[in-house]
């Protein structure tokens, strides 16, 4: 393996890791605050990517405005799902919210095929050009995408640590009863967290769609990866999701280049099983329940 190839794969690994991290942080945020499994998280990611595709490639509107619009629209979409579908089920058996998210997968992914067509498309690049460092191609697009992901993750961290709403979210995640006694409006926090988690996923979809390609069935694969990451990092742990994102990003980048991805999946799922059974809190997180 040459240095050039290694660097190239590392670049891909970091970029993928950051984007995966974004998806997984959204998922883990939703689980942490509401204790529901948003199984249709990948479908939200797909919707975000298609929004930008239509905005930029079909309607020829500015890329960055579309990126922001996608996040805003999906934020309200996610918040709406929470208010309409998940809130009535709060406090009931976990199976019911699982069933609703399952139904959302059916509806969104099939409606996606009907509306968008089962064709592979790509969001055009917003920037061209590249430089060569250490023999590898460093495209500007890739660097900007990695940078944006990093900025978003830092912004989220800032939001959770330093703002009032972030503090409230963490309080609800920690102990919903105490937080409501302290005057936090749990219901509002729930829809905000759902919206925020969905928006993160949508932005990840936009970035991934620019970097790779988009297709209505892309959601399920993203869900699988997001779950792998979240399980590795520990359900509800944001730093864990980021670290897990890098691990899966690098595995993806190296294994798809060097080995068959089929075996990578088998090993991945066996690892997940072992973690869930013997260390359910994940490698970095704390246990819920």
């Amino acid at each position: 393996m040459t240095l050039q190839l290694t660097v190239q794969m590392a670049i891909t690994g970091v970029t993928l890791g950051l984007i995966y991290g974004l998806i997984a942080i959204g998922l883990t945020l939703i689980f942490g605050v509401m204790r529901i499994i948003q199984y249709a998280h990948g479908e939200i990611y797909m919707l975000g990517a298609y929004f930008l595709y239509y905005w930029f490639d079909k309607w020829h509107l500015p890329y960055w405005a579309g990126f922001v619009m996608s996040a805003v629209v999906i934020f309200f979409f996610g918040a709406g799902l929470q208010l309409l579908l998940f809130r009535p089920l709060h406090g009931k058996d976990m199976l019911y919210s699982l069933a609703v998210s399952l139904a959302l997968i059916f509806i969104i992914s099939s409606a996606g095929i009907i509306a968008f067509g089962a064709v592979i498309r790509g969001i055009s690049s917003f920037v061209t050009g590249q430089i060569r460092i250490a023999g590898a191609e460093w495209t500007f697009e890739r660097m900007v995408i990695a940078g944006i992901s990093l900025v978003l993750i830092i912004a989220l961290w800032f939001l959770l640590q330093r703002t009032k709403i972030g503090l409230a979210m963490r309080a609800v995640a920690e102990d919903p009863e105490t937080s409501s006694l302290q005057g936090i409006n749990n219901r509002r926090i729930h829809w905000v967290a759902m919206g925020l988690g969905s928006a993160l996923s949508a932005m990840a979809g936009c970035l991934m769609g620019t970097l790779m390609f988009i297709v209505p069935s892309m959601g399920f694969l993203a869900t699988i990866k997001a779950f792998m990451i979240v399980i590795m990092g520990g359900l509800g742990s944001v730093p864990g999701a980021l670290v897990g994102g890098f691990v899966i990003g690098f595995i993806d980048s190296f294994l798809t280049t060097l080995a068959t991805s089929e075996l990578a999946y088998i090993i991945g799922f066996v690892t997940i099983f072992v973690i869930l059974v013997f260390k359910p809190s994940g490698l970095f997180g704390q246990a819920w329940e």
Binding site: L85, A99, L102, A103, F106, I107
Partner: peptide, 8 residues
């Protein structure tokens, strides 16, 4: 899609 709607 209809399956999903029935489920919800």
């Amino acid at each position: 899609v209809i399956f999903g709607v029935i489920l919800i």
